[in-house]
Write a protein that binds this DNA or RNA. Sequence first.
DNA 1: TGAAATGTTGGGGCG
DNA 2: ACGCCCCAACATTTC
Length: 486
Amino acid sequence: MTQPTIFWFRQDLRLADHPALTAAVATGNPLLACYVLDDVTPGEWAMGGASRWWLHHSLAWLQGEIEAIGGRLVLLKGAAAVEIPALAEAVDASAVYCSRQVEDWAVRQEEETGDLLAAQEVAFERIEGALLFSPEELRTGAGEPFKVFTPFWRRALTSPAPPTPLQRPRNITFHKGGPKGLKLDALALTPGKPDWAAHWGDYWQPGSEGARKSLRKFLDKALDDYDESRNHPARQATSRLSPHLHFGEVSPRQVWYAVHAHCNKHDADPHQRDKFLSELGWREFSHHLLWHNPGMATEPFNTRFEQFPWLGQPEHLERWQRGMTGYPIVDAGMRELWHTGYMHNRVRMVVASFLTKHLLLPWQAGERWFWDTLVDADLANNACGWQWVAGCGADAAPYFRIFNPTLQGKRFDADGAYVKRWVPELAELPAKYLHEPAKAPKDVLEEAGVTLGETYPHPIVEHAAAREAALAAYASLKEDQGARAN
DNA sequence: TGAAATGTTGGGGCG
DNA sequence: ACGCCCCAACATTTC
């Protein structure tokens, strides 16, 4: 009997433009496709609740696609470095193929799996497929990893273009037999009661078809005004591809080439195109950074920040998480996150600035909350995004760049549509006061049915004072450094 | 991929 | 007519 080739699906839940899958099929041996839910190896970065909901539906989609071509996706649970070699042993596999990942734990997982497979004399191939450019190859003239985005992306854009997307493999022969594996429901990925994800199907379609639809819709409806509209959270102006990209339901190469094809065909504005592609660039930058600096998920990239005096009150963290800070744009964002597993990126920056600067709570606390609540939770993007806002990341926002949540609201949600949607208790307020209900005259508040401190909280901190405190905290950091240097 | 403080300019009211 | 003040509008600097 022919020995099977095992294909180990990870964060690459697609069939098209899949170099590792294509390579596995090219071995000519019957394919045994599997997914391992590994909550052991990632340690504190085991998937959060929102991601699990997504994974459930993405696996369901992938199963359907594979079954439609006569195959089967074997679901397993446990440490991958145990499960994969055991599976290889059980079915007498000749080789195991998978895609590479950048996370520290994932690299370790690959290495341990590879060691055991080597001892069993089973070939193990790890193949790139989640990035446009290779972190090993994309370096400065001096051979160092880039630490600043602009030169990083300039170099990327002048490097040889990423290969064009691969077709999905045709005529895959699947291995008959092998273990049955677990039923999808047995992985228990979806919430029980209360079912906080009951309506998420209205917002999302996990799986590669949903990814394609999102991309198509974005190109047709939103790309031509992307640069301006993307900053307005009430508009449908961003691609919302992040969870699809995280789970590998669509590859960045597919997105890259779809954007170029669309723009060539419609003679679209290259400026809008480049703005959007640079967002893929930030994803790329984050992943390269994490690969080069595994500690970035928990430790500040800029070591000066190791002794930053986080002074925040723990009870403020819960107010922030629940969207009860008294700053409407912040609360709207946090509630959008809770209700949909997603937050508009402009608002992510505002709430992150608020947590780290107005509340002086450590960025890791925000990173952790996002990890558990975002459907697009991605170790590289999440860690780098938080570090960027906190001012300790690579090419970070300078520490003194403190968003004024009221001004951000007025500027990017001028008519208050976003706040009205997610903070309904303020919906009757005139737009003029939506972003600062404390400034509204008494009769206006009464008219709108708003009683501050009862129906909606007073601001938990006063902006000007909080801003001064943050600047002082950052200044103390600078002085400490000076003192130590002497 | 800020905001606030500070500086500069120029028009208009007014003595 | 002139200088002075006020202040909006804009520019620059600072955090």
